[in-house]
Amino acid sequence: MHSFDYAAPDSVSAAVSLLAANPGARLLAGGTDLIVQMRAHRREPGLVVDAKRIPELSALTFDSGGGLTLGAAVACWRIYGDAQVRAVFPSLVEVASLIGGTAIQGRASIGGNLCNAAPSADATPLLIALGATCRVVGPAGERAIAAEDFCVAPGRNALADGELLVSIHIPAPRPGSGAHYLRFIPRNEMDIAVAGAGVSLTIADGVVTAARVALASVAPTPLLVPEAGQAIAGKPATEETFALAGEAAKAAAKPITDMRGTIEYRRHLCAVLTRRALTAAARQAQGVH
């Protein structure tokens, strides 16, 4: 590994100053992506800025309306270790439990997963499906970015020089709603999604009133598919309906052929996973276990 400088600021403003003054610097949360990339010479930052001493980035709080604000460096174990998160966002708990193994979950964060901007990120499609927004602070001040707009290319996010992700806000779930992320991997653990589907939906009187579908690993970025949600809104919450969303997801997917799967196979998986994920989310929405 190359030689680099390390800083551990204790405020957002100090971190912004460091990042702004050192183009090419990288923020370190859990390091489960960054350190691996540095060891493989895929990234060679001259300065690594540790985020873990900044209180806001390590805070996990619920607002009065039931929305969750997740500091960008909150490690996965804190998500599944939090009783309120388990009660309100079971899908988020599932995703936090899916990323890496126990040791990795002690370090890795949902914010880091988002910033790493891998098309295969497991958390991002769910964040998109849940309608999450990202709070970003930089030299020019603060702005909000929708989760679906945060990744712009493989390994590249929407942050400008000097900007950092402070937190992710997930709105309170609506009554009668459910969410689920389902990925396909050839093994049963320790794998990168060949394709993945993060979904949320709301059901009233057996009818889907709203749905959001986002896909992993089938486009340069995690991909929101509005057509999939539109295709089932107003229809009965049945497997046939969910299959329509699956077809819309399949049509929207733009995968490549690589060692994880062919274009044809991945598009096919989008239909299967979207249908299966919506079926699981519907069970949750309707209180069926």
Binding site: P186, R187, E189, M190, D258, M259
Partner: peptide, 23 residues
């Protein structure tokens, strides 16, 4: 998994998929 120019694309235990105990 070899690229056309002979590079092994999956030279890690993440991508060289040996079975785990869960498989």
């Amino acid at each position: 998994w070899m690229s056309k120019d002979g590079a092994m694309m999956n030279s890690s235990l993440l991508d060289y998929r040996m079975p785990t105990s869960l498989d």
